[in-house]
Computed example of a mutant assay.
Amino acid sequence: MSKEALEWLNRNTLIGFTEKRGKAWHYRADLQSEEPNHYPGPIPVEDVKRRLFGWEAVSSPVYVESPVTGGLAEVPGRQAILRGDNGHVMGIFTDGYEKHPYVEWLINTIATLLEDDLSIGSAGLLRGGAVAWVSVEVPENVTTPEGVEFRPHLFGATSFDGSLATTFKRAVTNVVCDNTMAAGLAEAGQQIKIKHSRNSKVRIGEARQALNIIYQVADDFAAEVAALCRTTVSDTEWNAFLDAHAPLPDEPGRKRTLAENKRDTLTKLWHHDNRVSPWRNTAWGVIQAVNTYTHHEQTVRGAGRVERNMLRAVTGGFDELDQATLHTLNAVREEPVGVSAA
């Protein structure tokens, strides 16, 4: 990752509860501003507003150069959304596009959903400020009897570039590897999406009921972890899983090399990495191996790793990953993995 990308992360993301989770992987002391972006406890709401969301998204007409006169002609029915502080163009839309300001939608709405003081665990801007997220977390880590330490949270994100509808969803952060995981491993995580259209709004009562907020997440997730840890995966089944998850092409070449590298990395995680190996020979170990590989080891093209991971967390990519892993594991076992839906 370039120094410019690292500098952006150190100045445009805020990381809370570091006494519980440690420093973020991108932390660099020499790239911090006068105000460090790490907080031992929760991130103050006012710091998020001031340091990240202290600017306005502005709608502006769109103009193009006329090939006849050389002057500028306004494009009817189109608007550009710019940062009011530096003029950065974040997106171009029809007149029907409705802005969802970050403070209103990611702080005020979450506060209303929770009916309580905010405990912000992380917040950040990506793509020059065109994408933003806020994660609201419980103060203390939850540790299961099987030694899995996690943090349940409510995740909110939106965009000014058209890449995301405003989304609120339950999720879990696995502390040992800083991975995002589905709150319900057996099914898609509960979420609410609101399009950027005229008269868009959150129906608070419906959203609260659908999300079950974060209070039920800990019990649901801990029960699923226990079931997965009780499910034994033999060495033979692990090898069969690798064959199904990362099959080797018959012919030599780039595809076979990529598959071999993927299998080698997964095997090292399975046997030797403390993010995975403590749960080796269990179904949880299989989930953890694939999730950790995808978060931290897989080659990323066309986007920074933190951007890719954050967008997957919002769009449900990691929910789908965990479910697909379970499906593949079930296909190579005589008995299906016993995980009830959250």
Rank of each mutant, 00 (worst) to 15 (best):
T144R: 11
T144E: 03
E149D: 10
R151K: 06
P152L: 03
H153G: 12
H153A: 08
L154Y: 05
G156S: 11
G156C: 08
T158V: 07
T158F: 00
T158Y: 04
S159C: 09
D161A: 07
S163T: 10
A165P: 01
F168K: 06
R170V: 01
A171S: 15
V172S: 05
T173E: 14
T173P: 01
V175Y: 09
C177K: 07
C177Q: 08
D178S: 10
D178C: 04
N179S: 14
M181R: 14
A183F: 08
A186F: 08
E187T: 15
I192A: 14
I192E: 14
I194R: 00
I194D: 00
K195L: 13
H196Y: 03
R198W: 09
R198K: 14
R198L: 12
N199A: 15
N199S: 13
S200Y: 06
S200I: 03
I204F: 14
R208F: 06
A210H: 13
N212L: 10
Y215M: 04
Y215Q: 05
D219H: 08
D220A: 12
A226V: 04
A227Y: 10
L228G: 02
V233N: 00
S234A: 13
E237W: 13
W238H: 04
N239E: 15
D243T: 10
P247H: 01
L248G: 03
P249H: 08
D250N: 03
P252F: 08
G253Y: 00
R254D: 07
K255H: 10
R256P: 06
R256F: 04
R256Q: 13
R256L: 09
T257G: 07
L258I: 05
A259Q: 03
N261P: 00
K262A: 01
